[in-house]
Design a protein around this nucleic acid. Structure first.
Length: 155
DNA sequence: GCCAACGTTGGC
DNA sequence: GCCAACGTTGGC
């Protein structure tokens, strides 16, 4: 199956596109929402494209691109006692939470802001523009992905 | 910092 | 299994 596209959110106080550029590859840990978990576990695979979205930021928006290099596997932090993401209700033989590995691809010179995304009629209907949309892993339509990249390059 | 929207929890 | 209370997200 052809690669698919996703938007993944993170707060810059936790992790930024600059951190990913430094690290090269990182595990997208700490997702604790079932819908997002299902995407991570069942649908996201190597080669998929990722819009790296920074939320609660100034401005919030897409800061760059990443690529999935490893599909869904159990998020190790759920088993680490004392870890912020530790989940005592998750069993090793039946992990509740999943993660994927992503690789740095590109850091946009300027963030494609949520405001700019909302203003672009070509991006109408994109999930992230929906009010109250808190899902931290979202599918993105190919034309929407391409348009965001185009916006990042058109300065 | 406010608060609307949404997800999860827990009493019944 | 309903639904109110509570906690979290995240734009503004």
């Amino acid at each position: 199956m052809a690669g698919r596209y996703w938007l993944m959110k993170v707060e810059p106080t936790a992790y930024t596109i600059a951190d990913l550029e430094r690290d090269g590859v990182t595990g997208w840990e700490g997702v604790r929402n079932y819908k997002a978990r299902n995407y991570l576990r069942d649908e996201i695979g190597p080669g998929d494209g990722v819009l790296f979205y920074q939320s609660n930021a100034d401005p919030s928006g897409v800061a760059g691109l990443a690529e999935v290099v490893k599909g869904g596997y159990p998020d190790p932090t759920q088993f680490e006692k004392g870890h912020h993401y530790h989940d005592p209700q998750s069993a090793r033989d039946a992990p509740r939470w999943y993660t994927v590995d992503v690789r740095f691809v590109e850091r946009f010179r300027d963030v494609v802001s949520l405001a700019a995304i909302k203003e672009n009629p070509k991006l109408r209907g994109m999930m992230v523009t929906r009010r109250g949309m808190r899902l931290s892993v979202q599918p993105v339509d190919t034309p929407h992905f391409d348009e965001v990249v185009r916006m990042a390059r058109a300065t």
